[in-house]
Amino acid sequence: MAKIKKKVKTIKVDADKCNGCRGCELVCSAYHSSPKYSTINPARSRIQIIRHPLKDIWLPVFAGEYAPAECMGRDVYTIDGKEYDECTFCRAACPSRDIFKEPDSGLPLKCDMCESDPPLEKPKCVEWCLNDVLTYEEREEEVEEGVEMEEVEVGLKSMINKYGMQNILDTVNRISQKQ
């Protein structure tokens, strides 16, 4: 397979600087609403602050890939005397927990780095964080060319995972007949 240049986008998280304000959650949900900035709802945010104030835990976590099934086991980390809850560092929307799912439909959320046309200088959460917790970086890497799934395909795949192939086929069939 041919080698191509791929832009790797990174948000560096310096959790020690986080003052726990959740502004990133607000602005993420606002940016991703339709029309843009029409609604606010942190439950729809693709970045969530895992908060345990008395345990001194304020940890921004970004939504990653959807996982259709739970892991075989769960993890609990203790770092610097702080015990983090099960799967705190995991970025997946998965059946084991409510995080990173649309509150009404339950469909998974995923951080898209605020990709838009024209592109933003940096994702909104990075721009909004005035405490330098989040830093945006881009670099190029050489990778083997692969087939990228399109947005519709990503959505359909997660629907299939959630409801099963037959259900989705039946529903599409029914809707198309009505139209």
Binding site: S38, T39, A43
Partner: peptide, 10 residues
Amino acid sequence: TKDINLARGE
């Protein structure tokens, strides 16, 4: 976990 609407968000 509900939405709050802005009249003129932009």
